[in-house]
Design a protein around this nucleic acid. Structure first.
Length: 425
RNA sequence: GGAGAGGUGGGUGAGUGGCUGAAACCAACGGUUUGCUAAACCGUCGUACUGUGUAAAGCGGUACCGAGGGUUCGAAUCCCUCCCUCUCCGCCA
């Protein structure tokens, strides 16, 4: 959520930012309502003030045995008037809130302006030693490979749950679990995060806090009976850990890493890119979340990307980093880097991580603050998160890049101690 | 699922209609004292909105004692609904 004061004071700046995100703005309407709101507040407060003083007098009069009937009658009328203004105020505030919650975060000034993913900028490419895009043999894709090696079973996954619910078997299951453990351990040991194992179902307030609701409602699973949502990412529960809290400045930055299963409806995206792991309803992800002081958040974003990169370098998987343009940024993000790993069989890059700075957008929505030691005042923290990483796309790149001409898959060396085997055949 | 207890400021915890935005204690912060540390003593110490300041500070107003309604001239305090936590019993992983 944006600060209404920012909008009030810099409406043109805000409109431009929204336009750059390809969204329509309702800023003028909002400012109109804002004005109305303050007017109602002024009137209601004045009357309340009157009521408070007079009510005290009534108390004293009664104590000293005087007759207060007339004053009481008048205050009753004042009370009715107050109620009227309060009602108007409430509906105005509801309108404001609705508009405000649909306004996206503004892009940071360093983000390139652009309409679509075409205009994202590749800022880095990392390839393992001796890597070639054109290999000596034709790699088969992960679906076929998984079937041949009997480690992935998308058909049976579909039988059990529906398409997009992968079933891992045997060494495939072990490899998946090993990847998760490796990534968690790596971040804990080398990047100084503390581990969280969050709930996978969250309430509405949590979904609102991180910005999934109300805009993305269609993309979320929803358990109506209990009012709970299966999480689309661990970002939701982990960021909400500190909802409505005031952290102390000396504890910042707070850095969490946690594993969760992630659930996404992916409404309307059938057909395209939906083969195997490319688009699934349930996947596994290790997520990093940071709560930081505002002035450090862009440095922290770079470090976050570096933390995710380290995993890929340790696994020796080719990747590139994109800086997303304004039009491709998500609703809550001010700046975002995507990390894409190479898939030889698909002959393209696959998004395996997304590292974003939300500045104070989520913090304002969910009331996450810290006490500034200088001013002693609470301020909103900046929140960031990044996948470190999602296993589904990573698994595609891993299986394909590590396959041999004979159709075996070599297990990356760093995973051996987790898997207990070195090859899948 | 059944029965009961309870939700007050950073924490503990008082407070059953006006003198309570809220005692007391702890923590925190500032200071005095001190060779240093500790102790002791003094002081400060909620948040949001809003008005007035060029702005910071300040000052004024309003609201907030789990949430939302209600009663009343006036509600932390009385009534209703909901949420949450805890204890006991039952069931179950």
């Amino acid at each position: 959520m944006l600060d209404i004061k920012l909008i009030r004071e810099n409406p043109e700046f805000v409109k431009q930012g929204i336009a750059n995100k390809n969204e329509k703005d309702r800023v003028d309407e909002l400012l109109q309502l804002d004005k109305q709101r303050r007017d109602f507040i002024a009137r209601a407060d004045e009357l309340k003030s009157k009521r408070n003083t007079v009510s005290q007098q009534v108390g004293q009069m009664k104590k000293s045995g005087q007759d207060a009937t007339e004053i009481i009658a008048e205050m009753k009328r004042v009370g009715d008037e107050i109620a009227e203004y309060d009602n108007k105020l409430r509906s105005t505030e509801e309108e404001i809130d609705t508009i405000l919650r649909y306004i996206p975060n503004l892009p940071h000034s360093s983000v390139p302006v652009g309409k679509t993913a075409e205009e994202n900028i590749e800022v880095k490419r990392w390839l393992p030693d001796g890597f070639k895009f054109e290999n000596d043999f034709k790699q088969i894709d992960h679906v076929e490979l998984g079937k041949k090696l009997n480690i992935l079973d998308f058909e049976r996954g579909a039988k059990i749950s529906g398409s997009g619910f992968p079933l891992y078997k045997g060494k495939g299951a072990t490899l998946e679990r090993s990847l998760i453990n490796f990534m968690l351990d790596y971040h804990l040991q080398n990047h100084n995060y503390s581990e969280i194992f969050p709930p996978f179902l969250v309430n509405k307030e949590s979904m609102r806090g991180t910005g999934q609701l109300p805009k993305m409602e269609e993309d979320m699973y929803h358990i109506e009976k209990d009012g709970l949502y299966p999480i689309p990412t661990a970002e939701v529960p982990v960021t909400n850990i500190h909802r409505d809290e005031i952290l102390s400045e000396k504890d910042l930055p707070v850095k969490y890493v946690g594993y969760s299963a992630c659930f996404r409806r992916e409404a309307g995206s059938y057909g395209k890119e939906s083969k195997g792991f490319l688009r699934v309803h349930q996947f596994n992800k290790v997520e990093m979340v940071k709560f930081v002081k505002p002035e450090t958040s862009y440095d922290e974003l770079e470090l976050l990307v570096k933390d995710a990169e380290d995993i890929l370098q340790a696994l020796n998987i080719p990747y590139r980093i994109l800086m997303l343009c304004t039009g491709d940024l998500s609703f809550s993000a001010a700046k975002c880097y995507d990390i894409e790993t190479w898939s030889p069989a698909e002959n393209k890059w696959l998004e395996a991580s997304s590292c974003s700075n939300f500045e104070d957008f989520q913090a304002r929505r969910s009331g996450i603050r810290f006490r500034n030691e200088q001013t002693k005042k609470p301020e909103f923290v900046h929140t960031l998160n990044g996948s470190g990483l999602a296993t589904s796309r990573l698994m595609v790149s891993l299986l394909e890049n590590y396959q041999t001409p004979e159709g075996k898959v070599i297990v990356p060396k760093i995973l051996h101690k987790y898997t207990g085997f070195n090859v899948i055949e």
